[in-house]
Write a protein that binds this DNA or RNA. Structure first.
Lengths: 163, 163
DNA sequence: TCACTTTCTTGACTGATTCCAGAAAACATG
DNA sequence: CATGTTTTCTGGAATCAGTCAAGAAAGTGA
């Protein structure tokens, strides 16, 4: 059982209802899967959903994920060079730690206090509504272990900025 | 001529040489284009390169961009949901302001002083080497103007936003 | 239960980018 | 300025993640 910020208050079913969304088996399965497996890719969610329900179309999964994202029931993060990942922890200002090599993603709470990095609220005429922070690096497995799974193409980013 | 941080010191030709890369027409054209049109997409770079050189394959452009990115001559940014963009300003820790709607991208210097948001250097066993910050919002055109859709041009940006 | 929506299925399709094999060009030499 | 390596470019096919479309199926309110 994951201890998620937004979980425990309401069941997936109630949360769907609260947003005026229909309660369907694929939606429940996807939300439940994500509650226990945060940062899953669409493909992983699809696998998890099929594990419980049997055949479910890929399109249905994307639809569920998009609908729930739009309703803020889940949050989508799209690390450059990796497929999108989803999580149920929404509404708080937390950021992510992503492995350049395998895409593994972990949560990082705001390092510099409450709302860091969200200084510029109206720069150059832009109406800024979100500050996204991604920490890039290598996860333990990719640092030490040799080949973690499939062949990931050589990562291109090597900026290594360390202000 | 744009006054870019990394430009003015060395010409594109010298910068290629300094990295041990061959000096080819497509590379020069791409680097020059980017110096004057920061945050261009691969497609825009291709168009700019073809403007000077005539026919150049798409693959050549991607190759040039990848090679130069790997050599840190340019930096690639990949805003979620938008094609990757490239810029010649490398080596300093500046971040980006991206329009949710049209993808227009602007530079933002660190808002919170020197090293904002780059607190965690070794979290959870990860070896963090870069903190990427993206401010999401709507650009002036998309806020007020109706349909920016078609006018999705290179959007020659005025860089160096000071906060 | 019935009608009315919304959602799911199937399958084709897109856009951005990469892979492949061979032709062409760059550049350190002789 | 020829020559031979080595690296890069061409052209086309392929991949990957994700979307679009039309009709069938299921959830919901009366």
């Amino acid at each position: 059982m994951t201890q998620d910020v937004t979980r425990g208050f309401e069941s997936p079913r109630d949360r769907l209802r609260a947003e005026g969304l229909r309660v369907t088996a694929p939606r429940l399965a996807a939300l439940e899967w994500l509650a226990d497996h945060p940062h899953s890719t669409a493909e992983q969610v699809a696998a998890g959903v099929r594990e419980r329900l049997g055949a479910v179309s890929t399109q249905a999964v994307y639809d569920v994920l998009n609908t729930c994202t739009r309703a803020s029931l889940i949050r989508r993060i799209e690390p450059a060079g990796h497929p999108a990942r989803y999580e149920t922890r929404t509404g708080d200002n937390h950021h992510h730690l992503v492995c350049r090599r395998c895409g593994r993603t972990e949560d990082v709470d705001c390092a510099v206090g409450a709302a860091p990095c969200l200084e510029p609220s109206n720069v150059d005429g832009f109406a800024v509504d979100e500050a996204e922070v991604v920490f890039w690096g290598l996860c333990p497995d990719c640092r030490y272990g040799g080949q973690p799974g499939s062949s990931h193409r050589p990562e291109v980013t090597r900026s290594a900025v360390r202000t």
